[in-house]
Design a protein around this nucleic acid. Structure first.
Lengths: 206, 206
DNA sequence: GTCTATATTTGGATAGAC
DNA sequence: GTCTATCCAAATATAGAC
């Protein structure tokens, strides 16, 4: 039986994403996941082999896309001679925003990503570094050109702060209570706008 | 039998803090905790009643102190007419830094705190808001005086970003690889210095 | 307060029929 | 590919002796 237009594999990935966001990797059981996906318990091991592999696939599905979008946005910035610092920040932040606004689970994924940072698990970190590392280094080169007053170590520190604030904002950690009249979408859009302004000022500081 | 100078209760709290930081609330079992604390498995339920209560006590032990230090630091800032924005930020950030440098588990606690943000659990959030809320509002008043060009909503957004970056930095989420020659202590101290500079610039932005 | 022993539940994983 | 049934390990919690 099949209660949706999506394949068993996709339904498992979607349900896992939501439940990992809500309860964490250890806190969400495969029984919860398969029940939410409306598939049989044994399907996880059949399609993914283990819970660990399922977790990695949840990341891969989104990160491939996020990386591609960031890289494309950065390429445009690199080709424009008059690009501003805000443009470069936007190339980094907007793809994450778009992903978080994806109707089918993007918001949940940003919370999963934040959990991955909290897990100091080496295997996960290596996996993320393999996926993120390359693109991040390209961003560093561009920021380095735009901020010649910062040496490399100083620049790394500040970009790390930006990444932290971005993760925090997109994962909705904050205490800012979303007003009842405002949708989650526009709430995140505002967060991104504030973040670009704030980060630009922080990066330009002497 | 007692392998340490601390009481059973204190040993459980210390071990729980370290293991919750490393494996999360769901990921660390009471068996791991009691083994690390060198106490009997049944001791947790005897002293705390349940795992949930143990988690809250782990927070309470540190947050009472953190709040008191922040409040004291802020009072000093309020009494000085020439206090700068950096001073106010320092009153917020330095107590967290000091806590994270506490030899007996402070670093682990900052990671536990970061995990609490990742858990969107309502009970935990209410608990943290009860402990943090009051002091945070006092900080908002002071920042509001120092940054009259920001309206209240704008100020809230920016302080939320600062809190996010602080949590992220103190919990060691970042990709910045601590150089082998540098101790965890001076690594965190640098993180705090960078953060104060960055946040001051971000808050002053138009 | 601390221990052993155990009740009870829940978890990940698999075997084997269909 | 999907199902039922089940194995086995690990979890929280408690009962009752000391």
């Amino acid at each position: 039986m099949n209660a949706s237009q999506f394949s068993t594999k996709q339904r498992i990935l979607g349900a896992a994403e939501v439940l990992f966001a809500r309860y964490g990797f250890a806190g969400a059981s495969l029984r919860q996941v398969t029940a939410a996906a409306n598939v049989n318990l044994a399907a996880v091991n059949y399609h993914f082999g283990s819970k660990e592999n399922l977790i990695e696939e949840v990341f891969r599905r989104r990160l491939d896309d996020l990386n591609a979008r960031r890289q494309a946005a950065l390429s445009k910035v690199e080709k424009r001679a008059d690009a501003t610092l805000e443009d470069a920040l936007d190339a980094f932040i907007r793809p994450a925003l778009q992903l978080s606004l994806d109707r089918s689970g993007g918001g949940a994924f940003m919370r999963v990503l934040a959990r991955a940072y909290a897990e100091h698990d080496d295997r996960l970190r290596r996996f993320l570094s393999d996926n993120y590392g390359h693109v991040l280094r390209e961003f560093v080169v561009v920021f380095h050109h735009m901020l010649p007053h910062l040496d490399k170590e100083e620049l790394y520190w500040r970009l790390d702060i930006v990444a932290g604030a971005l993760t925090y904002a997109m994962a909705d950690f904050g205490v800012i209570k979303r007003k009842s009249g405002i949708s989650e979408q526009s709430h995140r859009e505002r967060a991104a706008e504030h973040l670009v302004r704030f980060a630009a000022a922080g990066l330009r500081a002497p």
